[in-house]
Design a protein around this nucleic acid. Structure first.
Length: 284
DNA sequence: CTGGGGAGGGGGCCC
DNA sequence: GGGGCCCCCTCCCCA
């Protein structure tokens, strides 16, 4: 599909902010010839260059009109549009040839290059409120903000920005749930590690007992061989498991880690403290 | 009831 | 992504 720019410079007509651009854009109609959208764009104004070192000002732009030969709106989410054939039409359309930007530059880069303010205000209510029919999926903007017939397309840059921020928020909260039990994990690797506790792929060649991890099997094999590689430096007692040696070292310590809040008695292990607190000593 | 050993599980980190 | 390792923890059992 051919894409064209019909650019008209409005001398002396400055676009003060992006909200105004949006309002103009939303009031423009479709092209009577092709059904595409005639939208105002803002591009850097060569007649009003910013002083070097000055931050870009949104009003240092000349508004132009771009005739995008596309069906209605085209602010694409790169993630959702990925997989669609061909280049992102909006990205091609918004590339600024005067800045030597290659077609395909992401929309957000184009906006940033043009000195436009960020449009990352979250919706005032989060999570989004479902409609009466419950059709509004969490993390998705209302359908009215979606561009019809364009996967990943949004009607306005603000809608696209809101969508992308919601997706970022959801990604951060993404959980990986185990199908065999109700546990959830923050990463796929952690979930796979957990699944091993169900599949128990490590089998003992001596007794056939199954374990989730190889090093657990190694520790178990020591119960058959009698190997005890961990020796207490205080009493020379040997242990097959490092954790058990660590627990044993507590018995040599004068200061026990776990203290009863009622009688101030200390214990070397939290299990001993718990058992003590459940005993008649500290019963109410 | 208490202290402690034995065995094993789970998450995180690093390579 | 997977394995090795570490640390922390729990449960069971026995003296």
């Amino acid at each position: 599909m051919p894409r064209s720019f019909l650019v008209k410079t409005h001398s002396g007509h400055r676009v003060p902010n992006y909200g105004q651009l949006e309002r103009q854009r939303e009031t423009n109609g479709a092209c009577s010839a092709c059904g595409g959208l005639v939208v105002p764009l803002v591009l850097p104004d060569k007649a009003a260059p910013s002083t070097p070192g000055d931050p870009p000002r949104p009003w240092d732009f000349t508004s132009v009109v771009a005739h995008v030969s596309l069906p209605l709106p085209t602010f694409l989410c790169n993630e959702e549009a990925r997989g669609a054939s061909g280049p992102d039409p909006l990205e091609v359309s918004l590339a600024d040839p005067r800045a030597g930007r290659a077609p395909g530059a992401p929309l957000r880069d184009s906006l940033q290059h043009l000195g436009l303010p960020p449009l990352l205000a979250l919706p005032t209510r989060w999570p989004p409120v479902l409609g009466a029919d419950g059709a509004q999926a969490p993390g998705h903007l209302p359908g009215a903000e979606r561009a019809p017939h364009t996967p990943g397309g949004f009607r306005t840059p603000a809608a696209l920005a809101r969508h992308q921020q919601l997706q970022c928020h959801l990604q951060a909260q993404r959980r990986f749930a185990c199908k065999s039990c109700d546990k959830e994990y923050g990463s796929l690797g952690a979930l796979k590690m957990h699944i091993r506790t169900h599949t128990l792929p490590c089998l003992c060649a001596v007794c056939g007992k199954a374990f989730s991890r190889p090093w657990l099997l190694q520790g178990h094999i020591r119960t058959h061989t009698g190997e005890k590689p961990y020796t207490c430096p205080h009493c020379s007692r040997a242990f097959a498991d490092r954790s058990n040696l660590r627990a044993h070292l507590q018995t040599h310590s004068d200061t026990k880690k776990y203290q009863c809040k009622r009688c101030a008695k200390t214990f070397s292990r939290v299990a001993l403290l718990a058992r003590h607190e459940e005993s008649s000593c500290c019963a109410p």
